[in-house]
Design a protein around this nucleic acid. Sequence first.
RNA 1: GUCGGUGUAGUUCAAUGGUCAGAACGAGGGACUCAUAAACCCUAGACGGUAGUUCGACUCUACCCAUCGACACCA
Length: 473
Amino acid sequence: MKAKYITTTLPYVNSDPHIGFALEIIQADILARYWRLLGQEVFFTTGTDEHGQKIAQKADERGEDRQIYVDHYASEFKKLGSALNLSFDNFIRTTDSAHKLAAQEIWRRCEAKGDIYKKKYSGLYCVGCELFYKPEELLEGKVCPIHTTPCQEIEEENYFFKLSNYQAYLEEYLSTEGVIVPEWRRQEAINFVKGGLEDFSISREKARLNWGIPVPGDDNQVMYVWFDALTNYISTLGWPEEGGNFTKFWTEGETLQLAGKDQIRFQSVMWQAMLKSADVKATDKVVYHGFINSGGQKMSKSLGNVISPYEMIAKYGTDATRYILLRHVHPFDDSDVTWEKMDEWYTANLVNGLGNLVARVMKMAETHLDAPVAIDSVPSITMPSLNEFNFQSALDTIWHTVQMQDEKIATTEPFKLVKTDKAAAQEIISDLVREVHGIASYLEPIMPNTSAVILKAVAENKKPENLFSRLEQ
RNA sequence: GUCGGUGUAGUUCAAUGGUCAGAACGAGGGACUCAUAAACCCUAGACGGUAGUUCGACUCUACCCAUCGACACCA
């Protein structure tokens, strides 16, 4: 059985953790936990992207040392890890020295292949945006649409990556079904590549970008985001060192990247070309999730409709947050989430559904059974939907079982039967306990704490504290 | 503009070239009490529009409308 590698994209640390990233990393966590339960060897990695001019600027504005500034943000993201009960095996930071060396190494290899060249680049540059614009993107008089200030004609010499060399390769790579999920995004990527590929710039002059990884052999240039950030997927495995985790999980393993739908060009095109250039195996599969909107609109600070993962955790708890983001957010398409809807989901499915079922069954068990129910064979849990990254469907199945147990209680009425035929009632209650145990087993990768509480309750034959408290009204 | 996705009950989703198009939440009603005033039962409610292919389409085709996305250096 091949070892499994799974990674998220690295969030940029210039703001607090976003709900979209929470979704992505919870998806990754569920898969990692699920595979481990199946007995597979798993390497689950995430981390933070910490270079770039925006970050340098913010740190400078605050008069803070840049490394200290990013240390702070990295710890914020690590906190999210414990708040969401994530089980990643490694947390890679792009300011880690090993990572920097890896980024320089992949650069060297691409350069040795002849895929990196230096070119004068001139364009209209907006100082506010730190970006070059095309003339057609600007307003009258070469004015930046965001800052409404005129852009400057700037000439700068940068390194470029010969993406154009990889047109045929990428078409071939993308022609395999499954390298991108969902399928229609693979078509999008194919169209994009067929439309022709331009080389992209991969460095900035130090004067313009002075918080980044130095370009090997050129003191005046610093790597722009791509070679820096994307390399994390392999540097986290110790690459360029072979033989260890890298060989086991990347070369010989099965690799899976999770990313937002805006990442196709970066993850499935540019990164794959870079890997090819450096003679590293391509990513086996990239799964792209949609975005989460709220109230029919994009979440934005100005609209005041931003839902932060921390707020969700504060209101519903860790497991409920994991539940909400997986069951009620579409795995691939955009979804809409509001506090009203989340309250409904929480109450209907967790408080009234799972929580209440466990309470009623375990109360009966505690009262009417003489000993804990023996669970003879732990059935191996398989959730086929998870192989297709259909988290909703996997959870639907579990909640269908919850509902069936409630129905069973209503039809068999063990609480009544116990007065007339205790043995028969005990038999029914024992069955219910076994079912609850089964539900808890399935929940293990999805809601680890809840699952553990239920399993313990079954083992002790004792009704647990309420799993999910009713929302204050 | 080009290409692609989507359009099913109040809401979120599912399904199939042909028995009454499923489910959940929500709503209305009933009945019960083991449980977190929970669960259970019943009821109401939908295939964007037009044309075509077909014995027959919600499912295929075309067009239209609506909506979302891709069309590159934006993390």
